[in-house]
Design a protein around this nucleic acid. Structure first.
Length: 873
RNA sequence: GGGAGCAUAGCUCAGCUGGUUCAGAGCAUCUGCCUUACAAGCAGAGGGUCAUAGGUUCGAACCCUAUUGCUCCCACCA
């Protein structure tokens, strides 16, 4: 029978089969019913993205949680979906069109969107198909997309609602401008990099005094064209004479005031700061404070604007070079220094960010964010690991308004309409907007109003995800059942982008938290500690990994060393370990499957082994449930791993295994199958495929509904602590006998006698197992010490194995002498404690008692060893 | 600059309320085994001044202080 089953588990033969089986029987489908719900909403990946290692880790964890919840009897619902990812997707579409020779600027908005939808339909959802290979148990009927019609509506309605509440406003702000994508970026989309720059020292002439100059230092001389003041520290003695004077901007000869402000650092550069309110956030603040003129000298593509007066149309970097040369020609360039500074780059296009004054839409976050801060700090929403609460608080306490407009086409178009005079109305339809606008201007022609061309920040749609996936803004039945969701599994990088904002939206629109627990995964890094990414080429292809090691193997590999919030140093050998584990389980199954079961009496050793294994299972199950409770997923896996490999395979199966060729008794077999089933259940969340495969082999399953997916999670029955501790002593004896065999080259086949001189009445619970496992011909209890025997001590009892053949007595003596020496040293350290009056007076009785026991054990052990030594003479 | 965290075996990490365990696991390493489920395996072994220096305590990997090194987040100087 066993010959037909290969000794190596082949995942490729089973995985697709079982995934199809699960889908066919709708085990992942969830509809509201009388059970308690358990809900997870997937962090929606980019619609046109492909699976990377971060997704693998993240979704494996979610699947583990969902599968266990399903087995615990919850109505488990894992909602999948994708995100339209406006900047990333639009960039991809623009690139693709460019390759076809089409420029975005040549297309109408409608035509461009048509291309984008084509692209989305073609590439969208690939990633979801890939997740199926991993075994993800999502309710695929619920797959949502952030630009689905209903979802789209909810985003627009929320915008309108927040506007009505006065939480959304339009304002001129210094924003991060991406001149390549020609769009504003949120602060979070800007990456700062250390670069080598030049610090230019430029002399400005003092107005009315051709021979007097003031020297400033700047890294961006092109912005000189936008200078509207020079600022010095009011207490700076060097420049006291300049207070109230005016200076002349080189090249363009604009006369500007010299102002004083404590913002200026006297130590940096020359202590004189040129002020360009339109092109620097701090200068903008200074400008507002001192009522300075604002000169915007740059176009949205990064070229010099007409307001710059010279170099108009020239790119900013070329203009920088040119103006430096021209200033030098004027003799006003004092010197140039090398400077290392940090410059912002666009996360998407990797071009230098231009701080730019622009009219944008903002969400006023101050009030909205209050419940979101409070309910994380008081653990209504729990973070795992909790250390992230700190940075969350830090961010929330210093929250800034959220710039939500993006100068893109792919996304949710801002529902604002403008009249020719600049007045605007926020409304769901053009008609509504018109009626609002016409109320102020009855002569307004409906054809003359136009919608805002911008779309909303992608996160302005994803922050509604836990509500909108259930159409929670329009109907109650589902959202009331599934919301709040249970666990959110995501990366700490998007704590502010996404997690914080979902919490905000949750309290604003449901008056309630969106999820109870947030599990932050780490970043998947390579062995060198570098972040895995496609661009670095250090990321393995997840699907290839699955093909190579099986989905179960990869899942185990991902989880083996990734405690919450810790980065995972990924190494393919981890997947190998996972695959090896699958193989181990497979072979345990082969053994059980291969037995000849007959109606014969059950050996006592098997009866005890079963009792012990059940007890061990239950005690580990307690631990396992606790690990899950605390989101210590990798520890839960390790507990399971050791339970299966060490306790079940290495000990239990060896204890009940019949001698080769002998039949297995029915009773033991039946119990073993039951134990195996329990093990498969706790394995299932980690290794869904192999557990289902063996589940169907090991017992005949009548109906499709007998899938392990929906089998009830085992319950803790009783933990027999005495039996567990007796087993540990037994195991110690087994190991000691194995050592005797090994050290003396005694073959396993050679039967041995064991003579026991018990210190106290010794329990014989495991004697039959001992004889079975160690190939003993007899176990003898005695008060006499046999001479010429190997011996060892376990818990004050002496064990002897009489010499069978020629043995090296001298070597044996040496070993005993060493042990004696060690034990004497140990006794001394214990006695030092016990003779310390302060220890004896202060330590709790329990501790004192244990030290005394150690002392007694050591004393008797020394006595025994001394006797042994003399017996060998 | 502001905030947070980390430092325990070669690697990745446990170690909960200071004391039952003279510091644990998995992997890796080494030794011996193709022993009838499994060499993707079995049986063993070695390996740690718990970053450093002080302090508190009868007792410290754990609490306190300082030092060193690393990581992350936020802000960002012309």
């Amino acid at each position: 029978m066993s010959k037909e089953i290969p000794s190596r588990y082949d995942p490729s033969a089973t995985e697709d089969k079982w995934y199809a089986f699960w889908l066919e029987n709708k085990f992942f489908k969830s509809v509201p019913d009388g059970r308690k719900p358990f809900t997870i909403v997937i962090p929606p990946p980019n619609v046109t993205g492909v699976l990377h290692m971060g997704h693998m880790l993240n979704n494996t964890i979610q699947d583990v949680l969902v599968r266990r919840a399903r087995m615990l009897g919850f109505n488990a619902c894992w909602v999948p979906g994708t995100d339209h990812a406006s900047i990333a997707t639009e960039a991809k579409v623009v690139r693709k069109l460019r390759e076809e020779g089409i420029k975005k600027s040549d297309l109408s908005r409608e035509d461009f969107l048509e291309h984008a939808w084509d692209w989305t339909r073609k590439h969208g959802g690939i990633i979801l198909e890939q997740l199926k290979k991993l075994g993800a148990s999502c309710d695929w009927d619920r797959t949502r997309f952030t630009m689905d019609e209903k979802y789209y509506d909810s985003v627009i309605d929320v915008f309108i609602d927040l506007h009505k509440k006065g939480k959304i406003y339009r304002g001129e702000r210094m924003i991060n401008w991406d001149p390549a994508a020609r769009t504003a970026l949120s602060d979070e989309e800007v990456l700062y990099k250390e670069v080598n720059s030049k610090l230019y020292f430029v002399r400005y002439e003092i107005a009315g005094n051709k021979n007097e100059f003031v020297t400033i230092a700047t890294t961006r001389p092109e912005t000189i064209l936008g200078d509207t003041a020079i600022c010095i520290h009011p207490k700076d003695e060097r420049y006291k004479h300049l207070h109230g004077q005016r200076a002349i901007v080189p090249i363009i000869n604009r006369e500007i005031p010299i102002i004083t402000d404590e913002y200026v650092e006297m130590e940096f550069g020359t202590g004189c700061l040129k002020v360009t309110p339109a092109h620097d956030p701090n200068d903008f603040v200074l400008g507002e404070k001192h009522k300075l003129e604002i000169v915007n000298m740059m176009n949205d593509d990064g070229t010099v604007s007409a307001a710059g007066q010279v170099y108009v149309g020239l790119d900013r970097f070329k203009a920088r070079k040119k103006i430096a040369e021209d200033i030098e020609k004027l003799g006003q360039l004092v010197r140039v220094e090398e400077l290392q500074n940090k410059v912002g780059f666009s996360e998407r296009t990797d071009v230098q960010i231009e701080p730019r004054l622009s009219l944008q839409w903002f969400v006023d976050m101050k009030e909205l964010s209050k419940p979101a801060l409070e309910n994380v700090m008081n653990d209504n929403i729990r973070f795992f690991p909790p250390k992230f609460k700190n940075s969350y608080r830090n961010w929330m306490e210093n929250i800034r308004d959220w710039c939500i407009s993006r100068q893109l086409w792919w996304g949710h178009r801002i529902p604002a309409w403008y009249a020719p005079d600049g007045s605007f109305a926020v409304a769901k339809t053009k008609e509504e907007a018109y009626s609002q606008l016409a109320a102020h201007d009855p002569k307004l022609n409906a054809n003359n109003i136009s919608q805002d061309t911008d779309v909303l920040d992608t996160w302005f749609s994803s922050w509604l995800w836990p509500i909108s996936v259930f159409d929670g803004f329009y109907k109650k039945d589902e959202v009331d059942y599934y919301y709040p969701t249970n666990d959110l599994v995501t990366a700490p990088e998007i704590m502010f982008f996404w997690v914080a904002r979902m919490i905000i939206a949750g309290y604003e629109y449901r008056g309630e938290l969106p999820f109870r627990n947030v599990y932050y995964t780490g970043i998947v890094r390579d062995k060198q500690g570098k972040k895995m990414s496609k661009s670095l080429g250090n990321s393995p292809d997840p699907l290839e990994l699955i093909a190579k090691h099986g989905a179960d193997g990869v899942r185990v590999g991902m989880l083996l060393s990734s405690p919450a919030g810790n980065d995972l140093l990924f190494d393919e050998s981890l997947c190998e370990q996972g695959r090896n584990f699958a193989n181990k389980i497979w072979n345990a199954f082969r053994l059980v499957n291969g037995w000849n079961v007959e109606d014969i009496p059950q050996p006592e050793s098997s009866r005890i082994a079963i009792e012990w294994m059940n007890s061990k299972f239950d005690s580990d199950l307690v631990e396992l449930n606790d690990d899950y409770e605390k989101f210590r997923i990798n520890e839960a896996l390790m507990t399971t791993y050791k339970l299966v490999w060490d306790d079940f395979c290495a000990w239990y199966l060896e204890m009940i295994k019949p001698v080769f060729g002998q039949p297995m008794d029915k009773q033991t077999f039946e119990s073993t199958v039951e134990i195996f089933e329990k093990l498969l259940k706790v394995l299932h969340p980690f290794m869904p495929f192999i557990s289902e495969e063996i589940w169907h082999y090991i017992r005949e399953r009548q109906s499709a509904n007998e899938s392990i997916c929906i089998a009830p999670w085992p319950e803790v029955r009783n933990v027999n602590a005495v039996l567990l501790s007796d087993f540990n002593s037994f195991a110690e004896v087994v190991i000691a006998i194995r050592n005797v065999r090994k050290e003396n080259n005694i073959a396993n086949k050679e039967k041995l006698n064991l003579v026991v001189k018990a210190a106290t009445a010794l329990k014989k619970t495991f004697d039959a197992s001992l004889a079975h496992l160690c190939n003993l011909s007899a176990i003898e209890y005695t008060n006499e010490k046999p001479a010429n025997a190997f011996s060892f001590i376990v818990e004050s009892s002496e064990y002897f194995i009489p010499f069978t053949a020629n043995v090296d007595v001298e070597a044996e003596k040496k070993k005993i002498a060493e042990e004696l020496n060690y034990t004497r040293g140990f006794l001394k350290s214990v006695e030092v404690k016990l003779t310390n009056e302060r220890f004896v007076n202060n330590a709790p009785a329990l501790v004192l008692e244990s030290e005394r026991k150690k002392q007694n054990d050591a004393l008797s052990k020394i006595k025994v060893l001394e006797e042994k030594l003399s017996a060998l003479n």
